[in-house]
Design a protein around this nucleic acid. Sequence first.
DNA 1: CCCGATGATTCGGG
DNA 2: CCCGAATCATCGGG
Length: 247
Amino acid sequence: MRLDNMLIAEGVAGPEKGGGVGAAANASAAAGAGDSAIEHSDYRAKLGQIRQIYHQELEKYEQACNEFTTHVMNLLREQSRTRPITPKEIERMVQIIHKKFSSIQMQLKQSTCEAVMILRSRFLDARRRRRNFSKQASEILNEYFYSNLSNPYPSEEEKEALARRCSITVNQVSNWFGNKRIRYKKNIGKAQEEANLYAAKKAAGEAGASPYSMSGTPGPMMSPPPGDESSMGGYGMPGMNGSGYSG
DNA sequence: CCCGATGATTCGGG
DNA sequence: CCCGAATCATCGGG
């Protein structure tokens, strides 16, 4: 009976229509980008389709069940002319039929659940439908990162400020820094170019009168910049096949 | 179409 | 909870 609960929770079963603001929306909106409304409208449309089909099928089953029941009843009535048939017997018959049909309904519920699950992962999983940040947002984030290379761990307040400036969520800022740190470390050589680039940009912006202590480079404690551009050909990228599941 | 870049999620550890 | 690491899934340029 868990299937019923789930279908109700997803808004497939339960209230025929109306708001139907399910638990679907807020379930995995963790770091979802700002405009989640658009994606959700698509999601809702598909969900509505599923629901429609579900109810359609359900009704069909019910109708078939009723038809079959009356059919059997008629047969029994005819038989009752040649042999005695107790009402108990009839009731038993009806119960058997209903049980059979409800098991069929279970199958329908299960496949509907499956469809909903697929739909959820297809639309609500933020890994899909990923959008790159704007160029400007990347600028801001990179600027902070390379200006604080020795300690690229923004506090909560700083994250909020950055999030506001970039028009993204705090979570996304955290994600960005997490990715940036690990990827910087993984590839110092290339990142160094970026570092120089942003350092130059910053220097241009400050035009000389900067309060930085000029005791050499700030020396990032993460790893010493080797400045070695060669020997960064290919690190093993395994197959990464795109296992296509139809959608 | 391939492949690197990139944002998001998952997992293990403190 | 945050971090690093691995991984996933999409984007975007060639």
